[in-house]
Structure formats: C-alpha cells, structure tokens
C-alpha cells in the first residue's frame, strides 16, 4: 500500500480501560499491510450515526510504523455530538469503517535535544505514540499528565519508562507548576501540549513569559467540543444551496450533509485545508489558523470549527 487516501478498516477489538475510556483496535479490511502509522498522527474516522454521518479525528496510539493494526482511545464525553457516544454505545467488533490515511499535524521535532510533553486528560493520546517512538532509544523526554486522581494509572500500560512520566492532579502538592517546569530546560528543548483549552493557553502563556521561542512550542487542540453553538443559515453560492446549520453540528458537517465537498484534514481549526471564502455575512472565528488581520478582514472562514455572528453566511462553495 503505497498511495491512496481512504482505508477500509475492521474493528478487531474493543476494550474498556476505565469507565470512560475505550480502546478500539482496527485492522485492514482490504489487502496487505496498512500504511505505516506515525508519531503524533491521527486518523479521521467516518461513523454512520442514526441521524447523520459523523467524522472525527482520533490520535493513533500505536507504535509508530505499525502496519498490522491501528489503535485509538476514545473518552466518553457527556456533551458528545455523537462520535464519542457512538463509539461507546454502538460500535462493535467486526464493524467496517471508512477512515482517512494517517495524517500528521503534531509530529515531534527530530532535531530536539529534549522533548517535554504536557497532556490534559485524554490529551495524552498523541503522546502515547511519542513515548512508543522514544522509549529505549536514549531520547531525552518528560511527559507531564494532568488528570483526575482516579485516572492517574489508566495509561500506565503504554508508558514503558515510568521515571520519565509525572502525573499531576488537582490537590495540594500535586498540581503542575508550569512556569517552574519551563525555567531550567536545556537549549533546543521542544515543548508539546495537548489538552483542554485552559491548559493549552496556560502553557502557551507560560512559555512566552518564560522566554521560549514560539517555534519550540507546539500544541494540538481538541476541535470537536468547539464546533457547536447557535443555529444559523448558510448559502452555498456556487452550488445554489441554502442550508441550516444546527446547534450540535459544525458548518463543515452541515455542508457535507448536503453533498458538497470541502477538502479538509484536521477538522479542528488547525491545518487550514478547509479554508473557504466568505462572500457575505460575518464569521465567528474559532480556529487557530487565520491571523489577526485575516480574522478582522472576514473574507475567509474555517468551516470545521467556525460559525456565524450574522445569522446568515454566504460562502463561495
């Protein structure tokens, strides 16, 4: 398997590793080995929900280079728009799914002297592949996991070097002191953060204040929780369609529901691939891609996460 863009996978195993965490193992339903998985990579999974098709991106936790199977861990989220609930309630062994090839927006910097990872809860998943890559190779790293105390051991099976893993939770003596962590790190360290926005923002701010060059700081944000909001309407000018974007779906999902294709990759407002021109109306930008001037200009929108302030958007689609 050398080129392609879609995979047909079979659910080979499902295992609950905690009351809210479910591990899913996929194998190739087609011929031959899978494309090699990658450090920090994700898979875009298409789920056939009862009402609509759901597309979510999940980090691959498999050892980088794995070709026999891919594994993901999915947390059950109370406010789930469907993906998490579907995987926890409906997905079963033997099911066939369509996914993307692995994509990577969060690769480690190979030239780094030291890797420092900060994870918030399920945000640890991309780092499980980092650790699988680094362990045993003499690569210097530290993983800091911030989570609820009762979950502090949930990921232990994927962490072969426990002396490099530090778990923090919300109790005196156990909280992560981010500025202190960033203070004495050797030159050519790289810092990675994945977790809820408040943690990511704290880390980014501490890094800036602490004199870290911004190109040594990398984050992957959870996109899905961001995409809901008030319903609005969108006109797809070139397709001649007018669509309703519901409270619990993203603009991109609504567009796809109408059968209009938009190239996309991360579905989390980071990669810039789904960039769409706005002909009329005022976007509510929620992405991490557009610059300040581009946001203020209002001529473009990332439909995977952003919505409308104006009640109606006219798009060049």
């Amino acid at each position: 398997m050398i080129t392609g863009d879609q995979l047909q996978l079979r659910v080979a195993a499902i295992r609950d590793i905690s009351p809210t965490l479910r591990l899913v193992r996929f194998e190739n339903a087609g011929d031959g080995p899978l494309p090699p998985s990658a450090t920090g990579a994700h898979l875009q999974v298409v789920l056939q929900g009862a009402q609509k098709e759901i597309r979510n991106a999940y980090s691959l936790i498999s050892k980088p280079g794995s070709r026999d199977a891919y594994e993901i861990i999915v947390r059950r989220v109370p406010e789930s728009r469907g993906g998490s609930a579907y995987i926890h309630e409906q997905l079963k062994t033997g099911d066939l799914l369509t996914t993307s090839w692995p994509g990577n927006l969060f690769a480690p910097q190979r030239s780094a002297r030291k890797h420092i990872m900060v994870a918030g809860g399920i945000g640890i998943t991309p780092f499980l592949s980092y650790v699988a890559d680094f362990a045993g190779k003499g690569i210097d790293y530290e993983l800091h996991l911030c989570c609820r105390e009762e979950e502090k051991d949930s990921f232990a099976p994927w962490l072969p070097e426990p002396d490099k893993v530090f778990v923090h939770w919300d109790a005196d003596g156990h909280r992560l002191d981010i500025p202190a962590l960033l203070l004495r790190q050797p030159a050519n360290s790289h810092l990675y953060v994945c977790g809820p926005d408040f943690l990511t923002n704290d880390v980014l701010e501490a890094a800036e204040t602490g004199g870290w060059p911004d190109n040594h700081v990398h984050c992957e944000r959870f996109g899905n929780a961001l995409s809901g909001g008030e319903a609005f309407r969108a006109v797809l000018q070139r397709s001649g369609k007018e669509i309703e974007v519901g409270e619990h779906e993203s603009l991109l999902e609504a567009i796809e529901r109408e059968g209009v294709e938009v190239p996309c990759l991360c579905r989390g407002g980071a990669c810039g691939v789904c960039l769409t021109s706005v002909l009329d109306g005022e976007p509510e930008h929620r992405d991490h891609y557009l610059g300040k001037a581009e946001r203020a200009g209002g001529k473009h929108i990332m439909p995977c996460v952003s919505r409308a302030k104006s009640g109606l958007l006219v798009l060049d689609l």
Partner: peptide, 9 residues
C-alpha cells in the same frame, strides 16, 4: 503552531 500563520491559496 507553525502551520497556522497564513492562508494557502
């Protein structure tokens, strides 16, 4: 972070 600076057209 490095990917989000500007717009590929």
């Amino acid at each position: 972070m490095s990917l989000r600076k500007s717009i590929p057209d």
